[in-house]
Design a binder for these strands. Structure first.
Length: 291
DNA sequence: CACACAGCCTGCTGGC
DNA sequence: TGCCAGCAGGCTGTGT
């Protein structure tokens, strides 16, 4: 199972565009309270308020995605570590870890939310009426623009990076600075830009930040191509396993293997109670690292 | 506001 | 063979 970052969530959003948009919800089942823990009014309210709602659009920012409903609210979803949406014919046996089921008023496939590790979740949220930026659910208001957003502004991110006093990878993972990047693509983008993860953000030059976001764009584009080519639009419009980009990574998960640029063995190092992978030759430790 | 970190969770892996 | 620690890492809440 691959952890979903922006490209995977975007692949899911495209699947929902096909599988859910334009349909009207008939009934909703929620299995256990945890999946809707962010919905303060509880599972019964969640289900009741969704009944009869028509889905008008599938929207994403960073790793959040939501279905815009015909009453102005949004069905907000986060996949967490392991969440998947599956569109399957009614009667298909329930899989393990089924957390919610959406039936529609038509005879098409039902939609399921499946999540092994339950870091994911669903909620009903109001969409803030804000004339200065894209309308997003209240819960998503603090999430920064992601690099695929037409309004994403590298120059503005650079200015914020320069004012920070932290390491570049911490900053990349901060969804209030730039959204959509997780541990895997952070390492991949840093490798492409030949930057060490502990490089102080206040020492970065503009050209380095350009290289970094070029790297982000490249890994995102490659992952989206992989996701876009391999999903079955009829059966599993939305499948967390097919189409995930896990075979073309340069450093992530490749400890001991040679760097494809210089041949030095890739190193794995503990970082933020996780792992960072880097090439020790292409990505040298800075003189004044900020871990 | 900026920054750092504990805690939430389940399945798999490897050491003993 | 079985047990259990360690690992995977998204986000929120809380502390400084």
């Amino acid at each position: 199972m691959v952890v979903p970052e922006l490209p995977e969530v975007e692949t899911v959003r495209r699947g929902l565009d096909v599988a859910a948009v334009g349909r009207t919800i008939g009934s909703v089942e929620v299995f256990g309270p945890r999946t809707v823990r962010r919905h303060a009014a509880g599972p019964a309210d969640f289900a009741a308020r969704l009944r009869g709602r028509r889905i008008e659009a599938a929207v994403r920012r960073g790793k959040y995605l939501w279905l815009r409903l015909d009453d102005g609210a949004a069905l907000l979803a986060h996949l967490g570590m392991s969440g998947q949406f599956l569109a399957v014919p009614a009667g298909t046996p329930d899989p393990p870890h089924l957390r919610a089921r959406f039936r529609f008023t038509d005879t098409g496939p039902e939609l399921r939310f499946v999540d092994q590790r339950t870091f994911g979740g669903l909620a009903l949220d109001e969409v803030a009426a804000n004339e200065s930026s894209t309308a997003v659910p209240v819960t998503v208001a603090h999430i920064a623009l992601d690099p695929l957003d037409p309004a994403f502004d590298r120059g503005a991110v650079y200015e914020r990076l320069r004012r920070r006093r932290t390491g570049i990878k911490r900053a990349l993972l901060d969804q209030s600075l730039v959204s959509g990047i997780g541990n895997i693509y952070a390492d991949e983008a840093l490798w492409r830009a030949k930057l060490h993860y502990a490089r102080g953000t206040d020492t970065l030059r503009r050209a380095e930040v350009e290289r970094l976001f070029d790297g982000v764009d490249e890994v995102f584009a490659a992952a989206l191509r992989a996701g876009g080519t391999s999903f079955d639009s009829l059966y599993v419009a939305v499948n967390g396993e097919s189409g995930y980009f896990d075979r073309s990574l340069e450093v992530y998960g490749r400890e001991g293997e040679p760097c494809s640029r210089c041949g030095a063995p890739i190193r794995r190092e503990p970082f933020m109670n996780r792992s960072s992978y880097r090439c020790p030759r292409c990505q040298r430790t800075p003189r004044e690292p900020r871990w």
